[in-house]
Design a binder for these strands. Structure first.
Length: 325
RNA sequence: GCACAGGUGGGUGAGUGGUUAAAGCCAACAGACUGUAAAUCUGUCCCUCCUAGCGAGGUACGAAGGUUCGAAUCCUUCCCUGUGCA
């Protein structure tokens, strides 16, 4: 018995399984299968699914599915509010601790790359968003020309300005906000404080990577189903209750449904635009996840038995991995 | 059959004699992204070659001819498409 073999399971951090992949790749199905097999609890990592009343267009797990195993961080934000990556990370971390206390396997599931990174790697401890400041910046940007924000940031934090494209307003605004609110350069904040990665878990990332053509076809079908199941009606209700301000109304599917409601698109056009938007989103997600470290890629859909078996195998290996070195 | 309108790169659609391999938009592909992220933004995008460049050559605006130093752009014929009249 060498020293390496004296490590016992009890001394190891518990496992955290992460199921990632593009939209419509079958993350929900896979996570359910895994949760049932390993006494798991599912923790959402999908920004849209956190909002209440956004149901059809976010492809949340059904109530039947949610009865099978515990689900967390779904329907926990009012459509009138908006969640942010930082807030998400705080809530998710405390949820992971709870699951750990119960001795269950936490299964993090979702497609929001930034939220996943915020949770796993942590954000730098910058200031929270300031609505008033943002409003002022946006107004000045419109009156003083499209290069205005970039010039401001260049003066405040040259290194940050060089990394953010002059056309990327949301990122410019956040960087300016950080500099002004903290009275420091964002670049310095990053360097001083760094990120605060998640501690206390061994992380196993399982990535779904289905054939792209097949994925696109599945996305088309699912978007059509969303329309058939009442996405338009859901959007109408949300518009009446919350107006255009509800942040997820600007997102996939809802945006196109709203355009139909306002008479800007025909139903057919809205559907096609929604399908297109979902396909484009899937592509962006794949770009993001490709960069994610240590992903064990599964080449297929999450509802495929073969893929589920493979995923189960990977988790079993991880659970007993300590004894093999 | 006659009269108009029109046929442009994967799609749409500008361009009416030369800085046009051909605007813009979309798709596609690649990429960035540390607090609205289902958001936002960037690059490539006819083919071949290389010393990889506002580089060289080839092919291209329905087809074939013609005018011209030069044509997607003008002329002729032909083939398609739409609309109207017969």
């Amino acid at each position: 018995m060498g020293p390496a073999l004296t490590v016992t399971a009890a001394q190891l951090d518990p496992l955290l399984a992460v199921v990632l992949g593009p939209t419509a790749s079958g993350k929900t199905a896979l996570s359910l299968a895994l949760a049932e097999r390993f006494a798991g609890e599912i923790v959402n990592c999908d920004s849209g699914a956190m909002y209440r009343e956004f149901d059809i267009g976010t492809a949340k797990p059904t109530t039947a599915e949610r009865d099978q195993v515990p689900h967390h961080l779904f329907d926990c934000v009012s459509p009138a509010d908006h969640i942010t990556a930082g807030e998400y990370a705080r809530r998710a971390r405390s949820m992971l601790e709870e699951v750990k206390t119960r001795g269950h396997l936490p299964i993090l599931v979702g497609g929001t790359g930034l939220y996943l990174r915020a949770l796993l790697e942590g954000l730098f401890p910058g200031p929270q968003r300031s609505e008033e400041l943002r409003q002022r910046l946006r107004e000045r940007a419109t009156s003083r020309g499209p290069k205005y924000l970039h010039r401001i940031l260049f003066r405040l934090d040259r290194a940050a300005a060089e990394k953010i494209h002059a056309n990327d307003f949301p990122k410019l605004i956040r960087a300016i906000e950080v500099c002004l609110a903290s009275r420091q350069r964002m670049t310095d904040l990053w360097q001083q404080r760094g990120r605060d990665p998640l501690q206390g878990f061994r992380i196993l990332r399982l990535g779904l990577d289905p054939d792209r053509q097949a994925l696109y076809e599945r996305i088309n079908r699912r978007a059509q189903q969303m329309f058939e199941e009442g996405l338009i009606e859901e959007t109408k209700t949300l518009l009446e209750k919350y107006g255009n301000a509800a942040s997820p109304l600007a997102s996939l599917g809802y945006k196109q449904a709203a355009q139909f409601i306002r008479g800007e698109l025909t139903l057919e056009q809205a559907l096609q635009a929604a399908q297109q938007a979902h396909r484009n989103y899937a592509k962006r997600q794949m770009t993001w996840f490709r960069r994610e470290p240590e992903v064990q890629w599964l080449r297929g859909f999450g509802d495929d038995n073969r893929i589920q078996t493979e995923a189960v195998g990977r988790i079993e290996t991880s659970l007993s991995g300590a004894f093999r070195g």
